[in-house]
Computed example of a mutant assay.
Amino acid sequence: MKINDIDMRRWKEYDDIITDSLWIFPARDNTGAHTPEYHGNFIPQIPRQAMLRFTRRGEWVLDTFAGLGTTLIEARRLGRNAVGIEINGEIARKAMDLVENEDNVYNVETRIIVGDSTSEEVYEDLGNFQMVIMHPPYWDIIKFSNKGGDLSASQSLDEFLNKFRRAVHLASQHLDEERYLVLVIGDKYSKGEWIPLGFYTMREVMDEGFTLKSIVVKNIEENRGKRGQYALWRYRALKDGYYIFKHEYVMFFVKNS
């Protein structure tokens, strides 16, 4: 089964596709409709790389935590149909405005569902997808809303993981067998303890019937929470005995047949 548009007879020509497990990007791609204004957006290069490697033009991609539509914009650029689920109605409307500002050269379909990705009714009218991309909140680092299904509103780690697994379970019902689920997540630090959200959520996905194919580590040069405050964070790290976050995980899973 062919799951991308790569012609292996011309494999040397695909310089834009990364095959290493360390991704270092000097800057976020803010061209076209992309915007960094939403705190928590991931960089467009991540869904772009994922879709180039593991989808074909004309196929369908589902983003269960759509935010301002980063995945949807990249999908439109690459000729992939895409559906996003976003719990915040105001953000969803802004995302769709941004998507519509991106040229639809390949005449693909793009839509956003305002709803809770942990709720079964959100998926009722959806067909099958050839990729699922999940960039959930990193628990309560950024609180996006007070809605019950919002992972960032979870009061405990167990609640966060239960909600996340519910979203994985529901989305996976619409993912074709032997196709990819891509998880983008970082860890958190709380009360002197490193909380390995990446590895906790990795296990939840695997327990839902997926095989882990790769873990990519992506660098973070500077995020909005630390912008212009590196000296302060370095002081805190030296004082309290920890290391400053400079990475996120991009995990690639295949749905078992």
Score class of each variant (00 low, 15 high):
1 M>W: 10
2 K>V: 02
3 I>S: 07
3 I>Y: 12
5 D>F: 12
6 I>F: 09
10 R>H: 14
14 Y>D: 03
15 D>W: 09
15 D>R: 06
15 D>E: 10
16 D>G: 03
16 D>W: 11
17 I>S: 02
17 I>R: 02
21 S>G: 13
22 L>E: 13
25 F>S: 08
25 F>K: 06
25 F>A: 08
26 P>C: 08
27 A>M: 14
27 A>R: 15
28 R>D: 15
28 R>C: 14
29 D>I: 02
30 N>Y: 13
32 G>N: 14
32 G>D: 15
34 H>Q: 06
34 H>M: 08
35 T>R: 08
36 P>G: 04
37 E>H: 11
37 E>Q: 12
38 Y>W: 13
39 H>V: 13
39 H>N: 15
41 N>Y: 14
43 I>E: 07
44 P>W: 07
44 P>Q: 04
47 P>E: 04
51 M>Y: 03
53 R>T: 01
54 F>L: 08
56 R>Q: 12
59 E>V: 08
59 E>A: 02
60 W>C: 14
60 W>H: 14
62 L>F: 04
62 L>H: 00
65 F>P: 00
66 A>Q: 05
68 L>K: 03
68 L>F: 07
73 I>P: 01
74 E>W: 04
74 E>T: 01
78 L>A: 08
80 R>N: 07
90 E>G: 13
90 E>H: 13
90 E>D: 15
92 A>R: 00
96 M>E: 09
102 E>Y: 05
109 E>M: 07
112 I>D: 09
112 I>A: 10
113 I>M: 05
114 V>G: 00
124 E>V: 10
124 E>Y: 10
125 D>S: 12
128 N>P: 04
129 F>E: 02
132 V>N: 01
132 V>K: 08
132 V>E: 07
133 I>N: 00
133 I>E: 00
134 M>L: 13
136 P>Y: 03
136 P>V: 09
139 W>R: 06
140 D>I: 08
143 K>H: 06
144 F>G: 07
145 S>D: 03
145 S>C: 10
146 N>A: 11
147 K>G: 04
147 K>D: 13
150 D>S: 12
152 S>I: 00
154 S>Q: 10
156 S>K: 03
158 D>L: 12
159 E>C: 09
159 E>P: 04
160 F>T: 01
161 L>P: 07
161 L>Y: 05
161 L>E: 09
168 V>E: 11
170 L>T: 05
170 L>M: 07
171 A>Y: 02
175 L>T: 02
176 D>G: 07
181 L>R: 01
186 G>D: 14
187 D>K: 02
190 S>Y: 14
192 G>A: 06
193 E>V: 15
196 P>E: 05
198 G>Y: 02
199 F>R: 04
205 V>Q: 01
206 M>W: 00
206 M>I: 12
207 D>P: 08
210 F>L: 03
213 K>G: 10
213 K>N: 10
214 S>I: 06
215 I>L: 14
216 V>E: 05
217 V>H: 11
218 K>F: 00
219 N>V: 05
223 N>L: 11
224 R>H: 11
227 R>S: 15
238 L>R: 08
238 L>Q: 07
239 K>S: 07
239 K>E: 11
239 K>Q: 12
240 D>G: 00
240 D>H: 12
241 G>H: 00
245 F>L: 06
247 H>F: 07
248 E>M: 05
248 E>P: 04
249 Y>G: 03
250 V>D: 01
251 M>E: 04
252 F>S: 03
253 F>G: 05
256 N>S: 06
257 S>E: 11
